[in-house]
Amino acid sequence: MMAALRTPRGIATALILLVLAALPLLTQAFDQRYLLSIGTRIIIWSIAAVSLNMILGYGGMVSFGHAMFFGIGGYAVGILSAHGVSSGWIQWPVALLAATAWAALIGLLSLRTRGLYFIMITLAFAQLVYYVGSGLEAYGGDDGLNISRSRFPGLIDLRDKASFYWLCFALLCASLWFCSRYANSRFGLVIRGAKSNELRMTALGFPVFRYRLAAFTIAGALGGLSGILLANEGAYISPAMMSWMKSGDLIVIIVLGGMGTLFGPLYGTIAFFVLEEALPPVLNLVHKGWGEYWMIVFGPLLVLIALYARGGIDSLLGRRHD
């Protein structure tokens, strides 16, 4: 632990976590409330990215539909809220259960395919969920629905931005801890080994399909948690939160941060949001009106990362020894 703090990676990670832990205090001191809401979204997206990394990064299962779990978690909360069930003690377990069950079901079907077929079938399921969401006229259809935040009476008030932020941050820390246990457990070793050689893992006596299904289900549950948080962050649900572009963004984040590394999803999310927020004003400074075209800079940057920094941001922090 102490030794890890002496490497560039350890120092950078510790600094990031410190700044994130203190963010509500910092934004209050500098009177930048707007930054706290970006910070909250970064944390929530990081949890989603950690969950996708568990299957994509460690397991080579390239799911191109992970944002559907934003939708499942978010809509479960939103629909219950619309019917007057506002207690988080009911909403959250129901949402988690829904995400878990859905992940198990589509995992059962999609994990029978490999490679491009797996990408396409996960995308297809995500589109299915998306169109069901936009077809739910009672819950706002395409326009989405304003909801009230989950209530945990006597415990925490999610309307308080700082409290909500710290809850998300605590859940992110828990997700990272869980992911590190997962990656280094025997279960995780089977998932990681099967990524490079599925047949070999089978010949060693492991039913790879079942292991992958379990991992996919766990990742879906954690993705559902990020959906619950995302719905509460904006007090709003809409099909847009689970569009295929959001699934693409999650993949971009993981590639950017470093696939199959513990903190890669966190680095990637921060880089993604910072670039998204900072590039437009910077470009506007160069020439008024250029800010709108920030993707022109962002796209080639991703290409450069893919070409020259295969391990993403994580690899720029030095060689790994673990």
């Binding site: 080994g193 990524k195 060693l204 006596g205």
Partner: peptide, 22 residues
């Protein structure tokens, strides 16, 4: 295949096939 392996057959495959990422 995984059941056969579990009965107690251990294969050292041609080309060794170590997991490179472990």
């Amino acid at each position: 295949a995984f059941r056969i392996a579990r009965l107690g057959l251990g294969l050292v495959p041609e080309g060794r096939q170590i997991f490179p990422n472990l």
